[in-house]
């Protein structure tokens, strides 16, 4: 299989804080890659750089064989223009921790707006497709309501439909259940699992839901302090992690979830 995303020596700093340090990694086409690690380890930054919301300080990133943050001009490599970034962004969609639905638009318009004004689809086409996607996430009856009228889980499902409407090949999920009440996590995870089963998107998922990670992932990357220190299939990472740091992280996680479950 061929890689669809490649990071080469990508470094990102916020002031003195090094968030990603000379990161190298690849994602295969149609792969479901889950990024785990404690907060501040740089997981979300990887997604945000891919979505072009953060600019890396150094290094190269390729998406489908094309440089994301750079372009060639008269035989020289120069920083990407907004035009180039817009071309690259077409391939990628993102779902955020805090949903970021547009509060002034109905659920339906949240899903149609970019189809109409970015993809140039007709209003009827966009509407039809939006209703089909809302149906897929189980919210077609909420089409005429506003985000403020929805629960967190419903908002997140609309956000997933909104991202899918742009037909990206690559989907980024940034802690999509972390802002939800515990009883609403399941409905969002179910949508993601259905999506993974029925479609062929390349998915990069940052999550703290280890059960879900184990179920959905083709491969897990464990990040610590801006580096990927361990990667492999979930069956191995969760049962016999090689690195002490990974073991410690998973142990803490298991203790916490046992405490919650009263074990």
């Amino acid at each position: 299989m061929e890689h669809i995303i490649r990071f080469s020596k990508v470094t990102k700093r916020f002031g003195d804080l090094v968030v990603l340090e000379e990161l190298d990694f690849e994602v295969m086409a149609k792969e479901r890659l889950v990024l785990i690690g404690s907060s501040g380890s740089g997981k979300s930054t990887i997604l945000r750089i891919l979505m072009t919301l953060e600019k890396p300080d150094s290094g190269f990133i390729e998406v489908e064989g094309e440089s994301l943050w750079h372009m060639e001009k008269k035989g020289r490599i120069v920083p990407a223009t907004e035009k180039h970034l817009r071309k690259m962004r077409k391939k990628i969609g993102m779902v955020f921790q805090h949903f970021h639905l547009f509060p002034h638009m109905t659920v339906l318009r949240n899903v149609t707006e970019a189809q109409i004004y970015v993809l140039g689809m007709s209003k009827e086409e966009a509407r039809e497709r939006a209703l089909a996607l809302l149906d897929m996430v189980g919210l077609s009856e909420k089409a005429d309501q506003y985000p403020a009228q929805l629960s967190g889980g419903q908002k997140q499902r609309v956000a997933i439909a909104r991202a899918l409407a742009q037909r990206p090949q690559i989907l980024l999920f940034d802690e999509v259940t972390s802002a939800l009440d515990p009883e609403l996590v399941g409905e969002v995870l179910k949508v993601l699992k259905d999506l993974a089963q029925e479609h062929e998107h390349t998915m990069l998922i940052v999550t703290h839901e280890m059960g879900f990670a184990r179920e959905i992932a083709d491969r897990i990357c464990f990040l610590d302090k801006g580096r990927i220190i361990e990667k492999g299939p979930p069956s191995r990472i969760f049962t016999e992690p090689e690195m002490e740091r990974t073991r410690e992280f998973l142990r803490n996680y298991i203790e916490v979830s046992n405490a919650i479950n009263g074990v």
Binding site: E82, R89, K90, H100, F102, A114, V118, A163, Q166
Partner: peptide, 26 residues
């Protein structure tokens, strides 16, 4: 909120469209 800009950007709206359709109406 910054998230509105980020969501709009991730949907690939142009800068002008972000102002016109997302930011100014709010």
């Amino acid at each position: 909120p910054q998230g509105q800009w980020e969501a709009a950007r991730s949907l690939n709206f142009t800068k002008l469209q972000i102002y016109r359709r997302i930011i100014i109406p709010q």
